[in-house]
């Protein structure tokens, strides 16, 4: 199983532990990853506010590179996934629009033929690898751990671009993986809501209030940790939890795991290799409970 790997900017920037953990679990799952060093940022939806056509063209450029490698794209970021899916949705349904995009790519000698189907690692886990294969690789089940899912907006909305009708399993993918790891799912209504990251530099009070709400909600439900396939959600829920605690005037202390870290823990990979010491909110109590030191 081989994919054109699109880690996204954050896994190569503020969340190096995500990149590290993802590569480690992919090795064990037999997923080969081929980097695309010429691929650009997806635009994260922000660039699209200013110029959607530019954003779609940049994503088509990446898709064309993957087509030339003869591989499908795999990402480890909910936001990248959503933005790529939306761009792909617009281009695939409108050949004239795609032709306009391709006109811009021609100068670089690239053409997007419309065959890309980018998939987040979470979807790859349930659709391509299969949970049976994951089960076989679990050596340290997360028994007794209560884990809350947190998807990230871009991995759940809009449902048409994300092909939810043909893939209803995507709506519960995170819970399915958590259960496969042996942990107990802490279900809560905030799991598909916004973490607040996109407005962090625009309205920090509101952004931090969202962090406080979600982390307190799962704390009150007895969760040991939250797990997310989105590094931007991680950055906010983890990095701004100290501010959220101050704003909400309560201790929350909720570890926020990247999806590959949770999987890696159950595969018996060490705390250090998974970069669990690199979080702002300590993961020590959790890893002790799991028996990972």
């Amino acid at each position: 199983m081989k994919y054109a790997f699109f880690p996204g900017c954050v896994a190569r920037g503020g969340c190096p532990e995500l990149y590290q953990a993802a590569t480690l679990i992919c090795q064990r799952l037999g997923i080969e990853l081929q980097e695309m060093p010429g691929a650009s940022c997806t635009g994260a939806g922000v660039l699209q506010e200013k110029n959607e056509f530019l954003g779609d063209t940049l994503n088509a450029r990446t898709f064309a590179m993957a087509e030339n490698l003869g591989m499908q794209i795999m990402t480890i970021c909910s936001t990248c996934q959503g933005v790529m899916s939306q761009a792909n949705f617009r281009m695939r349904k409108d050949p004239e629009y795609l032709a306009r995009v391709n006109k811009e790519l021609a100068e670089e000698g690239l053409e997007y033929r419309g065959t890309a189907d980018p998939k987040h690692l979470l979807w790859v886990m349930i659709e391509d690898v299969g949970l049976e294969k994951l089960t076989e690789l679990i050596t340290r089940p997360l028994a007794g751990i209560r884990m809350a899912p947190f998807y990230g907006c871009y991995l759940v909305r809009p449902t048409d671009a994300l092909d939810m009708e043909d893939h209803p399993e995507r709506l519960t993918a995170l819970e399915q993986v958590i259960e496969t790891l042996g942990a107990t799912v802490v279900d809560f209504s905030g799991k598909t809501r916004c973490c607040g990251f996109p407005i962090l530099t625009i309205n920090e009070t509101n952004s931090v209030a969202m962090v406080a709400k979600h982390t307190s909600d799962v704390k009150d439900l007895g969760a040991d940790a939250m797990v997310t396939p989105c590094p931007l959600c991680h950055l906010n829920l983890d990095g701004y939890q100290p501010k959220a605690q101050a704003q909400a005037q309560r201790k929350i202390d909720m570890p926020i795991l990247h999806l590959p870290q949770a999987i890696g823990l159950a595969m018996g990979i060490s705390r250090k290799e998974l970069g669990l010491q690199k979080h702002i909110m300590s993961t020590k109590a959790l890893t002790m409970k799991v028996g990972a030191g």
Partner: peptide, 30 residues
């Protein structure tokens, strides 16, 4: 806090390969 936990984004920011092509696209479409 990010710095002491090893989460600071790299301060030396390298360019992607063939960045000139991206620059051209951005300039032209913007």
């Amino acid at each position: 806090r990010a710095l002491i936990h090893g989460k600071m984004p790299p301060l030396v920011h390298h360019n992607i390969e063939k960045v000139k092509n991206v620059r051209k696209l951005v300039k032209k479409l913007e």
